[in-house]
Computed example of a mutant assay.
Amino acid sequence: MVTVPELEGTFIEVETLVEEADLSEGPAAVRGVLAELNISEDAFTTEQYTDAVIAHRSA
């Protein structure tokens, strides 16, 4: 979990480790953890913090 001073909100990164043959299981496992934390999919982003900060500074 991280907060970035220039960005609004708190961010959490969830990663998983799967065998190469089971790559399709990774996203489901991550979504399952986030669902247990009551984090809805509309809160998901793939944007990197650095890109978000650059965009914020450019605004």
Rank of each mutant, 00 (worst) to 15 (best):
M1F: 12
M1Y: 05
V2P: 01
T3H: 02
T3L: 00
T3Q: 04
V4Q: 13
V4G: 00
P5H: 12
P5E: 05
E6R: 12
L7A: 06
L7E: 04
L7P: 08
E8I: 10
E8K: 07
T10Q: 10
F11L: 08
I12L: 11
I12M: 13
I12P: 03
E15R: 13
T16K: 13
T16P: 14
L17R: 04
V18I: 10
V18T: 05
E19H: 08
E20V: 12
A21T: 07
D22V: 07
D22Q: 14
S24N: 10
S24R: 15
G26T: 09
P27L: 14
A28N: 07
V30F: 07
R31H: 03
R31Q: 06
R31T: 03
G32Q: 15
G32L: 08
L34A: 05
L34N: 01
L34W: 01
L34M: 15
A35C: 05
A35D: 14
L37G: 13
L37R: 08
N38D: 10
N38V: 13
N38P: 06
I39C: 01
S40M: 02
S40L: 07
D42G: 01
A43M: 05
F44T: 01
F44Q: 02
T45F: 04
T45I: 03
E47S: 15
Q48S: 11
Q48N: 02
Q48P: 00
Y49E: 07
Y49A: 07
Y49Q: 06
Y49T: 14
T50C: 00
A52S: 15
V53R: 06
V53S: 06
V53Y: 06
I54L: 11
I54W: 01
I54Q: 09
I54G: 00
I54C: 00
A55S: 07
H56D: 04
H56F: 03
R57I: 02
R57M: 09
R57N: 09
R57L: 11
S58C: 04
S58M: 12
S58I: 08
S58R: 10
A59G: 10
A59D: 13
